[in-house]
Design a binder for these strands. Structure first.
Length: 865
RNA sequence: GCCGAAGUGGCGGAAUUGGUAGACGCGCUAGAUUCAGGGUCUAGUGGGAAAUUGCUCCCGUAGGGGUUCAAAUCCCCUCUUCGGCACCA
């Protein structure tokens, strides 16, 4: 063993060893308990970042620990390889997306290997592999058959300069395109034919199962429940005047229906134009609808935007009061929610109130709050609370809640509507007018319409010979040999769908595919998938709390119905790790600065470019644009992968944000060096020594050291189980500190050496999930032949951790007054007697009546007087 | 506005069930390592008062109130920060 710790050499050595021995390769072993540990796979951007290092270090601790505990651990890694950055690289540098992607993968894979993660690399795949996405096309076809994939015209974000659809995330908060054009006119809404997945069919189920995921963080479940947004209410039919037709509305406040004095339609509502047709309002409505359509969506839907609208010229009737209600088109009504039409009750809805005031529409109070009397003439805002119904016919006197039930029942009975549930969740639009994605397997034929590609013709391979410019339509649409095809039904000329699928589709089932990545008779080998699924522990960033995690839950349900998988939920336990943050320096003139561009210290930071004063950097998530990233490559180079892993795990608990600290990294490195020195001093004399066996009777320092050793095993085991890696590491540090101070370290007798051997061996074993290369090297230095990962996790000796003496805290009236050390075997009365005998306590209680003595076994005595 | 999470030394954080607040690390201080620097080892380190030395006391977990023998932990109110949703009918 070298005198000094050289991380680079040993890390390379053990990485090669693990790889050559295939130590992390797993197969289905029905005699062993499986454990599926998964971290969210990365997008191959080219380099790993600290977020990856943290995420995968956390996962690796659990994977290695579970393996040592005897589980058959599946710990795979792959690549979320379709997506826009590849196309941007093509636009900017003229590299083909495929080339760019696969080169990045090779680079990042090498980096991950240098981190020493315990992946079964034989299961690796990239989602842009035809052998992967062809099965996704099969899923699409099966979903199409069941009506779960459908095409619909809808409004989407449109950038006039790029001539392409943008995802919501690609629209900046000021309503412009993310590419940042000069004179950007702003993103508008454009009607488009788009493919959708019918996730709304599963809204209720997805919501219900939120209560059956005890292994998920509550805040993620809350966000999902929020996103699904269930509302219980009623549908009410408002007959149109002089017509058989009705306008259907959804409301959660059917108790206020007697107060509905007008009707509001979304500008996109089909009745908006048709009702006004031929009336004097036709032109006004048309121009209003046009204006709304052109308007920036964000601005239109902001709460602060003033309510405005236009009369359609038509009326409907309140089904309860038969009152004549003018029908308006209003900017604040959303076509996507409910029915796209809202019954307006200005007295009990603030939006309707504002609208009514602006256009002089009537107000009728129908709910009276408990205290004062509301009056339509004097009210200055809507009363949205509950109360007792008035002006509501046979429902007068009922309380709101009661009235909602009664009115819903009444509507049902009269065929005017009834109880309904509405969700905020919308269907998942998966069409992307992009090249670098999985083609949607559909052919359009003038004669047969929309025709799915027959399964035997799959895959629809993404053609390689395209030119990606970023302008105009999807590059696929310009590729004749791709677009032009034969109709599978009639054999006539057909055109291929040129949209590709949203990349979230790939990440919705990759975890299933990891169970059988080589299977080529179908998407999933059920036997293997059933063995491994569900994922026992999933680890990733909170930013996927809704999107990826909700889509995956939806996809799992679909795949279950199709018989591909057997589980209801894909992820039993979820850990959402915090972000990696570092301080940012921002100069008022030169923007964000790299730390090298800042001089001075403390309050006196100055910009090197302009000399301007810089406010002390606040902590923000590491990002290139904020110039506060730390490159893992640099860390590995300077300190080694083990130090990088150690720091990420020690600096804060996994679910909290991690504040970067160069000194903290130094500290972790220092600790490893300290352990190294201990081993290099001890390993020679302890090499052929066997650890003391369980149950050995010891005295004095030997006993104390052994006790600490076993207490540490217990603590570290419990801490890893509950993911408190920072405290697990601190417990190991304590053990190391104790070893340094223990006289046993320098004693030459056989028993001392055996106690020492056990202590030191334990340090290596407990460290192994955290700093695996380092631990392997220590292990080898102790003369062990097998890899440390093949050794079972240590168990603690129940007798060794037993305390013979315990420290009892003595309180008087709840205040700490004395401490005594007494034999642990003392009974309740003995402990109390000793506590009262204490000199200090006697002084304090002198002349007072002792009212009560409370005893907490092995902890404290509280004397009340 | 609604929902959720959090607030503990100079800093990151610990305290698993209400029972010694501040483990461990960083930083800082002192001593040792027969120069300095670095490294290492040892000790100290919440604030304040007291102190002819260790057997002293008070305050202290964002702030205020409460429950309890006992509160960082439970309850109520207020403040701050972060996150999600937000004209959703």
């Amino acid at each position: 063993m070298d005198q000094r710790y050289h991380p680079k050499e040993i890390e390379e050595k053990w990485q090669n060893f693990w790889e050559s021995q295939k130590l992390f390769k797993v197969t289905e072993d029905r005699n062993r308990k499986k454990y599926y540990l998964l971290e969210m796979f990365p997008y191959p951007s080219g380099k790993i970042h600290m977020g990856h290092v943290r995420n995968y270090s956390i996962g690796d601790v659990v994977a290695r620990y579970k393996k040592m505990r005897g589980f058959n651990v599946l710990h795979p890694m792959g690549w979320d390889a379709f997506g826009m950055p590849a196309e941007n690289a093509a636009i900017e540098h003229g590299v083909h997306p495929a080339k760019w992607t696969y080169e990045n993968i090779a680079n990042m894979k090498a980096q991950l290997k240098r981190m020493g993660f315990s992946y079964d690399w034989d299961r690796e795949f990239a989602t842009c592999d035809v052998s992967y996405y062809k099965w996704e096309q099969l899923f699409f076809l099966r979903m199409y058959e069941k009506g779960l994939a459908y095409k619909k015209r809808s409004f989407v974000n449109w950038c006039e300069i790029c001539k392409t659809v943008l995802a919501n995330e690609q629209v900046m908060s000021d309503g412009t395109c993310w590419r940042g054009h000069a004179d950007d006119p702003g993103v508008t809404q454009k009607e488009f034919d788009q493919w959708f997945f019918k996730i709304t069919d599963y809204a209720e189920e997805l919501l219900e199962w939120c209560d059956k995921l005890p292994g998920w963080p509550e805040r993620v479940l809350t966000m999902q429940r929020n996103w699904i947004g269930k509302s219980v209410g009623a549908e009410i039919h408002f007959p149109l005047e002089n017509s058989e037709e009705v306008i259907k509305v959804f409301t959660t406040r059917q108790d206020t229906v007697f107060g509905a004095t007008f009707m509001s339609l979304a500008p996109e509502h089909p009745l908006a134009l048709s009702l006004s047709k031929g009336t004097s309002q036709e032109e006004a409505v048309r121009s209003f609808v046009e204006k709304m359509r052109r308007q920036d969506w964000r601005k239109r839907t902001a709460e602060t935007t003033e309510k405005e609208g236009v009369f359609t010229g038509a009326y409907c009737l309140n089904p309860m009061t038969k009152a004549r209600m003018p029908i308006f088109v209003a900017n604040f009504v959303l076509m996507e929610y409910g029915t796209g039409a809202v019954m307006a009750v200005p007295t009990h809805d603030q939006r309707d109130f504002e609208f009514a005031k602006r256009y002089g529409l009537p107000l009728i109070v129908v709910v009276q709050p408990g205290d004062g009397k509301l009056s339509a003439e004097t009210m200055t805002e809507a009363y949205e609370g509950e109360g007792v119904l008035v002006n509501s016919g046979q429902f007068n006197g009922m309380h709101s809640a009661q009235a909602r039930e009664a009115i819903a029942e009444y509507l049902e009975k009269k065929g005017l509507g009834g109880k309904r549930v509405s969700y905020r969740l919308r269907d998942w639009g998966i069409s992307r007018q992009r090249y670098w994605g999985a083609p949607i397997p559909i052919i359009y034929c003038d004669r047969c319409g929309t025709v799915p590609v027959p399964e035997k013709d799959l895959p629809v391979v993404l053609p390689a010979n395209v030119e990606v410019t970023g302008m105009g339509e999807s590059p696929l649409a310009k590729l004749k040999e791709f677009v032009e095809t034969r109709c599978p039904k009639c054999g006539g000329p057909g055109r291929r769908e040129t949209d590709t699928m949203d990349t979230f589709v790939e990440s919705s089932w990759y975890f299933d595919r990891f169970a059988c990545p080589d299977y080529d008779e179908g998407p999933l080998d059920k036997k293997r998938v059933d063995y491994w699924m569900p994922v026992d522990q999933y680890i990733g960033g909170i930013e996927h709390a809704i999107l990826h995690l909700l889509y995956s839950r939806f996809f799992t349900r679909v795949l279950k119905e199709m018989g591909w998988v057997s589980v209801d939920e894909p992820f039993t336990n979820l850990l959402t790790q915090g972000m990696v943050c570092k301080e940012v320096y921002e100069c008022p003139r030169d923007g964000y600065l790299f730390p090298e561009e800042v001089e001075g210290q403390g309050e006196g930071f100055r910009c090197r470019k302009c000399g301007g004063q810089i406010s002390v950097g606040r902590l923000e998530k590491m990002s290139k644009s904020k110039k506060n990233v730390v490159d893992p490559e640099y860390l590995i180079e300077k300190y080694g992968a083990d130090t990088a892993r150690m720091f990420c795990l020690f600096a804060s608990p996994p679910e909290k944000d991690l504040d970067w600290s160069d000194q903290g990294v130094e500290g972790s490195f220092r600790f490893l060096n300290r352990v190294w020195r201990l081993f290099s001093e001890q390993h020679g004399r302890l090499k052929d020594v066997k650890a003391v066996p369980f149950g050995t009777a010891l005295e004095g320092d030997q006993k104390l050291l052994r006790q600490k050793t076993h207490k540490t095993i217990k603590k570290v085991t419990e801490d890893i189980e509950r993911f408190h890696f920072n405290t697990a590491i601190s417990a190991i540090m304590e053990l190391v500190n104790e070893i340094y101070l223990s006289p046993v370290k320098d004693q030459a007798d056989e028993l001392s050496k055996r106690v020492m051997r056990e202590a030191i061996e334990t340090v290596a074993l407990l460290l192994s999930p955290f700093v695996p290369h380092f631990a392997e090297e220590l292990w080898e230095a102790l003369g062990e032949k097998r890899s440390i990962i093949q050794r079972e996790w240590p168990d603690y000796d129940r007798e060794a951790v037993l305390e013979e003496e315990v420290l009892i805290v003595i309180q008087v009236n709840g205040k700490l007054r004395d401490r005594i050390t007494i034999p642990a075997s003392f009974g309740e009365n003995e402990v109390k007697a000793w506590a009262l005998k204490s000199e200090r306590i006697r002084k304090l209680t002198e002349g007072k009546e002792i009212k009560r003595v409370i005893l907490v076994p092995k902890k404290l005595v509280n004397i009340v007087c």
